[in-house]
Design a binder for these strands. Sequence first.
DNA 1: ACTCAATCCTGAGCGAACTCAGTTATTTTG
DNA 2: CAAAATAACTGAGTTCGCTCAGGATTGAGT
Lengths: 223, 223
Amino acid sequence: MKSRPAPQGRRERAKEDKRRRIMDAAHALFAEHGVGGVTMQQIADRADVAIGTLYLYASTKAELLILVQNQKFADAIDDGLAAADAAARWGADTVGVVLAMIEPVVACIREQPENGRTYLHELVFGDPAEPHRRDGLTLSLRLEAGITDILAADPAIDDADAATLARVVTSIIHVTTAATVHLHENLPGILDQIRQQVTAVLPHVQSRDDGGSPAVSSGCSTM
Amino acid sequence: MKSRPAPQGRRERAKEDKRRRIMDAAHALFAEHGVGGVTMQQIADRADVAIGTLYLYASTKAELLILVQNQKFADAIDDGLAAADAAARWGADTVGVVLAMIEPVVACIREQPENGRTYLHELVFGDPAEPHRRDGLTLSLRLEAGITDILAADPAIDDADAATLARVVTSIIHVTTAATVHLHENLPGILDQIRQQVTAVLPHVQSRDDGGSPAVSSGCSTM
DNA sequence: ACTCAATCCTGAGCGAACTCAGTTATTTTG
DNA sequence: CAAAATAACTGAGTTCGCTCAGGATTGAGT
């Protein structure tokens, strides 16, 4: 009766609609007040569902945050991959390419420090069984794989070490962007800290200032 | 009446006694059930104080955990420093010395995984204003300083880089010991992961089996 | 010995994350 | 189309971390 219910059952559509409302509500409230400044009840009210329903879509407040942040994170990683590609084509050295890749990601995390910190933390330390967290971890792996590729392209880096070093770089990013010690610093400051550590870690031309060694280099590669 | 009240006022003694009881209760219950399996009320009961009183001695459940764990952590660091000294005297290479230093610390954290993970996390991500957390951070710095010394003693490592690399090593330890991904692994497994990463990170003699290219390099720089 | 600050302790109560038994809406079956 | 089966939703209730107004204890002043 009354026209075709159209694609799929009505139930599916209702669910999809609810998911949207919940995500929108959570996104808006988290963005405005930070995770800690919002209650699940508020989100449920804004999404016009009961709290119980909210917990059907995200089994935890953290999961809800992750659900929302995954989107931004995914975009940031895509941006980073593109930027890294551009930088590599432009002739930047390995550290430069890595930083180009990282920059959007760090910016995304530090955009709203509280949310970004909590997000990162929940990803790494939370229960990977939760579905949204799983998605986030997959994203995280994509980031790490991207870094691995960049490192593997450097002739000075043994291919066998590339993955290990990429993991190290990931740890550096995680701690530097999320630790309370660095909370007061702005984005350029954070990126500098990361650059310093990544530079020290990669088997690059050691920047000695005792003479006149060319800084940017990668020029040592024979390409 | 009745003998000398002895050292200081009675109040001070009562406070000291309470602190002891609280720490003992927290220590025992955390050890047996893990942080998540114990309520503040249980701790208060066991220490024979009111909950309100508990919060006078540790302003947060996390702070209470930190208060308890700091002791073990401090001991572990001392053990590590001693072990590193021994290893160095014995002639171990830099990675070996670093691992000797780290081993007791990792063992301490993984002794009761849940508590160790939470402890580490609260240290790094919590509010440094809380006094006990401050103490823990100081310990953390001691660990990092120890690693810095070890690295600085290696002629292959630029003194300027030692501190930076020590921070990287600290990040590696933090993520590898506390991330959920590594939760299932046992202590040797964790230490292996750390060894692998530390080895990749330090500008050591790269083990090349491809023939004869002089490994250490940095040789591409014109120095 | 009495008063009276100062300090410390107490536990009922509050807020918020999360649960679950019961209800309602949708789809399937006869 | 009605009835049964299934899936989804609801919100009062539970738990636990944490607070704070009031009560008890101590030690100094007189």
